[in-house]
Design a protein around this nucleic acid. Structure first.
Lengths: 362, 362
DNA sequence: CGGCCTAGTGTGAGCGCTCACAGATTGGCT
DNA sequence: AGCCAATCTGTGAGCGCTCACACTAGGCCG
């Protein structure tokens, strides 16, 4: 025994040895077998409270943490979910990812992301491959493109998958926002506000979100007995919205525009502003997404709010169902939308008079 | 032997057995030892080309993929990097995360995210704990708050860490955008454009980014021999920018405003618009971030661009250095900014005449 | 022509955990 | 007191891989 004993037994909760404590170290410290430690770790009911307590103390003293690799090796489960997403810089995907992460965490899962630089089958396949190599327990694919489904079809059955905004690829669980309803809501609202007809600036043709919004717009016009004006196609970006705005400014008979997202709406509003077209006095405008900025556009933008947090939540729920942890087998979830009315689509009565005093529109 | 033999030897590349192929299966199929397979997997030079080829073929036939858990168990490396971020919905963090993910992938690492709901020491600690449990090989913390450093100090030494926008916590590697320079650039530009003085709408006080931008603004004013006007504090949101705009509208002697981010600028522009204050004729405005929308604000916004992709890239570089894969030990990286001049801060000569014809400003 | 080096390959142990089962303890009842 | 069931705890194997080392076969030198 050395003079000033207890030097290395100082209650420091940090082990002296190089390697981190393992389950055997804990077992020894607690005077039990490694298996009992394992039982405590896994909340097994069949361990006496007193024993459990001793083990817990030992764990704490040794600063023990369980080795996930060893655990994954034997259980064949990594407790990790993969998320594939395109351009996590955009508001929609970013928000969805956020929701997914929150829900996954609550369910005790980690989230590993793979974002695509370009959205094509090759890089999609590449991302899926990567995640598969990591042996994730399940996959959420934020796949707004039609062709993304092809890459997914391959791994059906091999791995639990939930597709977000990926349409209803047969046999794949999916979550999507009710785009059609959103299109209808916006269009109907514009008509109710007195629009003679409603133009539409859509997203890129191969995006499923574009399709849904176009469909909703067409349906609502049809129901009102109106012929849909020629479609203008954008690319989600402010600049494409600006271009569409310039074009619309040159056209006659434009009394309202439903734009497929808020970013494009901003560009369009800017183009209208430059052309001296007043919103909402001359033309009514509605967007889609309800980004935080929308309320501060000039004018504040009427738009369709998507509940991305709920999209994320439902994705995880559906995924866990497949993995076998959730309730029943449900394969498709639709998240409702909400119309947010702001100035861009509402004419005060005075403003309407203004409109009436201008050259009549068809 | 059964009549129509070869039924289960069809070249299907999919194994019949339930469990996935392991290294021994491959070894047997290739007629080598498991260790040789391992060598092929790890690109060991000491394996004859012919042998390697045979192994590769076997791997392909069996659809073998190496088990990362087993690998991690023995190497004590998970090939996974953790990212802690606050509100991945914001443009800055989202873009940074994107850059991080791209760079990590190139370096052969996976990325696991943990986003904070609220930004305080408790939830920060919680996120760090989670990631540590997952035994990540390193950590990137997007920690714009001063107090975030406290939670990080604890795990210094235990795990390689890089702090993004976290200031220069001693002993921690960090990457940050040159906020001070950004503040100076914007302020100087506004002065050069003829502003008598420059007001500032800052971010929240406890954010390091706010501090840097304020410092730059102060420095530049001092250099011009100007007394800094009273500081207005916002909260990054459009609504807080709007509030600041209303306040500034009531004040005299406002000839230019440097706003600490683009979102707030939008709100401010809206408030000015409502108050009949023209930008840039009456007041010059500059923002910070250069979000994609900035070019389409009314008017298009002069702003300071941050290269988030580079921030992500440098983070990973610094992290890999610590892990021992990169070049030398460098502890702090500063990413430069760039001033993007648009209409909000530039008066055309005609517009300037306009201004001159109004009641003189001090 | 035996020794020795090198390139290529094989052998066995062990990483830290869980699973299936075997063994030890306890208590209630006859 | 004796026995059985129920409760609690321990034992050993094995998950799939890498590491350290042992081995084999040629080729070259003295």
């Amino acid at each position: 025994m050395v003079a000033s004993g207890g030097r290395d037994s100082s209650a420091d909760s940090v082990r002296v040895s190089g390697r981190p404590a393992n389950i055997w170290d804990v077992a020894k410290a607690a005077g039990v077998s490694h298996q009992t430690v394992s039982r405590v770790l896994n909340d097994s009911p069949s361990v006496r409270p007193a024993t459990r307590e001793r083990v817990l103390v030992a764990i704490d003293e040794l600063g023990y943490r369980r080795n996930p690799a060893a655990r994954a090796l034997v259980t064949r489960k990594s407790q990790t979910l993969g998320v594939v997403s395109f351009d996590t810089t955009l508001y929609g995907p970013a928000s969805t990812l956020y929701g997914i992460e929150q829900s996954a965490r609550e369910a005790g899962y980690f989230v590993s992301v793979a974002s695509l630089k370009s959205i094509d089958v090759v890089s999609m396949r590449d991302a899926l491959e990567r995640l598969a190599e990591q042996s994730v327990d399940g996959l959420v694919v934020i796949a707004p493109l039609r062709e993304a489904g092809d890459a997914l079809a391959e791994l059906r059955g091999k791995l639990p998958v939930v597709v977000v905004e990926g349409g209803s690829a047969p046999g794949l669980a999916s979550v999507s926002v009710d785009q059609v309803d959103g299109g209808r809501l916006a269009t109907r609202h514009l008509l109710e506000q007195g629009a003679q007809n409603v133009h539409h600036v859509s997203g890129p043709a191969d995006w499923l979100e574009s399709e849904g919004r176009i469909a909703g717009w067409r349906e609502e016009l049809a129901q009102a007995g109106l012929e849909p004006p020629e479609l203008l196609q954008g690319a989600w970006s402010p600049s494409s919205g600006y271009a569409a705005g310039r074009e619309l400014a040159r056209m006659k008979d434009v009394s309202a525009v439903f734009v497929a997202n808020d970013q494009m709406s901003l560009g369009l509003l800017r183009a209208f502003h430059e052309e001296g077209i007043r919103v909402p006095q001359d033309v009514l405008v509605a967007g889609f997404d309800d980004v935080p900025e929308a309320a501060y556009y000039t004018p504040p933008l009427t738009t369709v709010r998507q509940d991305f947090a709920q999209v994320g939540r439902r994705s995880i729920e559906l995924l866990l169902e497949q993995i076998g942890e959730g309730p029943g087998p449900e394969s498709h979830a639709v998240v409702p939308v909400e119309l947010i009315v702001r100035q861009s689509s509402v004419r005060s009565s005075m403003q309407r008079q203004h409109l009436r005093s201008r050259p009549a529109k068809r």
